[in-house]
Amino acid sequence: MDARLLVEHIPSLRRYARALTGNAWAADDLVQDTLERACGKWRLWVVGSDLRAWLFTVMHNIFASQVRRTPPHAVVPLEDAAQEIQGLADTGRDHGTGLDLQRCLMQLPEEQRAVLLLVTLEDLSYAEVAKVLGVPVGTVMSRLSRARVRLQELMDGAAAPARPGLRRLK
């Protein structure tokens, strides 16, 4: 295995992990777990196929496993994430918008947030996202649509945080 192949993908893996977790420490741990798993399972990657998509698949599977194993009350409080983001932000920038976006992203259901981030932040095609997440392309499209609508509602302040199992009627 040539480590240079992995190294060029670390920035995008870190960016996606940070957006998924909302926490710099958890994101770095997720990237490290992803790289360790990729190195251990290197023989499963098909030479000539999209290494970036394969790495995102590995990361998504690790993250999904972590979410399933983590008790619901062990989620990082939004205030902690906001303080961490504020501490990392440039002092001359408007903190409100960035914090609002991060807070709103973290309120999206995990499956919607993953699709939204892979399409918009990582610029993957719908087919690539479907492969990474192991879902049909139509599911990617509907999750993306719902994520965009919900994010806009949250950013506009027009909706209270969604409660699991309840759907808004229009």
Rank of each mutant, 00 (worst) to 15 (best):
I10E: 13
I10A: 09
S12N: 10
L13V: 03
R15A: 15
R15G: 11
R18T: 08
A19W: 09
L20K: 03
L20A: 01
N23W: 07
A24K: 04
A24I: 02
A27Y: 07
D28V: 15
D28L: 15
V31C: 09
D33Y: 08
E36G: 12
E36M: 14
A38V: 03
K41V: 11
L44M: 12
L44N: 15
V46P: 01
V46A: 04
V47R: 06
G48T: 02
L55A: 15
T57K: 06
V58E: 00
N61A: 11
F63Y: 15
F63N: 09
R68W: 09
R69D: 06
P71C: 05
P72A: 07
A74I: 04
V75Q: 09
P77H: 07
E79I: 09
A82M: 04
E84S: 07
Q86P: 07
Q86H: 13
L88N: 14
A89C: 06
A89Y: 12
G92F: 08
H95Y: 12
H95D: 03
G98S: 13
D100F: 12
L101G: 06
Q102I: 04
R103A: 03
E110Y: 08
Q112I: 10
Q112M: 14
R113I: 06
R113K: 13
L116E: 00
L117F: 01
L118S: 03
V119P: 00
S125F: 10
Y126P: 00
V129N: 03
V129R: 05
P136W: 02
G138P: 04
G138A: 13
G138W: 02
M141E: 11
M141G: 06
S142E: 05
R143S: 08
R146G: 01
R148G: 04
L151V: 09
Q152I: 12
E153R: 07
L154A: 01
M155T: 06
D156G: 12
G157Q: 10
A158N: 14
A159L: 10
A160L: 09
A162G: 09
P164D: 12
P164T: 15
P164C: 12
L169E: 11
